[in-house]
Design a protein around this nucleic acid. Structure first.
Lengths: 237, 237
DNA sequence: GAGTGGTCTAGACCACAAC
DNA sequence: TTGTGGTCTAGACCACTCC
């Protein structure tokens, strides 16, 4: 079921992308839009707030909603570029190599990250991501066995996430991420094609399900030349 | 003027931080909260949506709002750690060195970034940020003269932003940021204490005013060991 | 069936910008 | 003064979870 405010949001986004609504101009007022879309003002405001959060418009009290020149810098949607997106963007061949898949008793560090007790077990999955013949990304995943009873090599080579969501009916709801730059470990050097680069970019994620339970800790270790992160930051207040 | 929903938001945040509301429990229902705070449900929902966006709760349809264990990992608020925050956090002395301050005719690259014509002028400000005696960050700012008639060395040493907001009454409204890792330039090598590090983390920002006009392009170039970025990502739909 | 959050409505008053 | 977006209300119906 798609809601009214989402339809309005999508309609306006389409009009901006197709040039029917021009950058630097004002949108019709909320009251006008409410009439045009035959709805209430609060519903229009939900659509406009989404546009604002996604960087399409800037709302100004007393004036109106200014359309932002969003495509000027070919700015993709905010967030991390995932392995598949990266590969698709570069339009290169890609594959995943499973280096390790095992059920382990977590060490102190992982117990800490996943808030586990001594008797909990976790799946440890280590995978190399290859793009255009180069090993660019090393993914180290630790998943709480309580939520994921079984993982196979086939699943790891394809996509763990689609397995979790489609087969196990788990819903990934949010993640806390931290980005730092580190010296490559011996593991990085042996599993990645570092090509003389002296650092790796590490994205450390804690992943939560929709009931707010923490079930996965991941380190995604990238060769620095292939890493890119974009962010759209609205000023707080 | 502080609004009702912001007061409710702040009250709930306080209760979570002080332990009156425990992680992993459910908040009272929206109807109960509406009664408790003597307000309407829509107003409660505004407060709860803020809590959700800031990572304090997870809303689940049919169940309720689950309180997230936010402080488990000493997770700061999402976003870039600024120079001052960094210095304060490390509790180290810090100072700013102004390497260059000039009014220039922008080259092709900057004209492009700021969408300028050939006759526009920009302020170019290059500053080194020193923490605990080490030159850690190189900030290169380009500001459209149309919005900023004058900048002095004193202003640059203090804070350009507070000058813009307090003296010039400009309101910075949002920024588009991109984070990449680059080879150090000769400029980086001469102005920063790179200590043998072979990369710099570069944050490229386009900064907009509240009327959606683009007025500043900045490159903030960090020594990799002192860089850290945190992000709270809610899954899209 | 009872309770939850998600959406939607038709009003109201306010702060602010433009004239 | 008029029009704008920001807040707030008191209802309503819906989809979903849990028992």
């Amino acid at each position: 079921m798609t809601t009214k405010y989402l339809t309005i949001y999508n309609t306006l986004v389409e009009q901006m992308k197709s040039g029917q609504i021009l950058p630097r101009t004002l949108l019709p007022s909320e009251n006008e839009l409410a009439e045009q879309f035959d709805t209430s003002r609060e519903t229009i405001r939900k659509a406009l707030n989404l546009l604002s959060q996604h960087g399409y418009i800037q709302k100004v009290r007393g004036k109106g909603s200014i359309v932002i020149d969003i495509n000027k810098f070919d700015f993709p949607i905010s967030g991390l570029v995932s392995f598949k997106e990266l590969a698709d963007k570069l339009n290169r061949s890609h594959r995943t190599i499973v280096n390790e898949l095992s059920l382990i008793k977590p060490d102190h560090f992982i117990r800490n990250q996943l808030q586990l007790t001594l008797k909990d077990q976790v799946w440890k999955v280590i995978r190399t991501r290859e793009i255009g013949g180069e090993k660019i990304i090393l993914d180290k995943d630790y998943l709480n066995k309580k939520f994921v009873p079984e993982i196979t090599t086939e699943i790891s080579e394809d996509s763990i996430y689609s397995y979790l969501e489609n087969e196990l009916n788990l819903t990934i709801s949010f993640a806390k991420k931290e980005i730092v730059v580190e010296e490559p470990t011996d593991e990085d050097r042996s599993l990645l094609d570092l090509e003389g680069y002296h650092n790796v970019v590490v994205i450390k994620s804690h992943v939560y399900l929709d009931d707010a339970s923490l079930f996965q800790y991941t380190e995604s270790r990238h060769r620095p030349d292939k890493f890119r992160f974009v962010d759209f930051a609205r000023r707080s207040h």
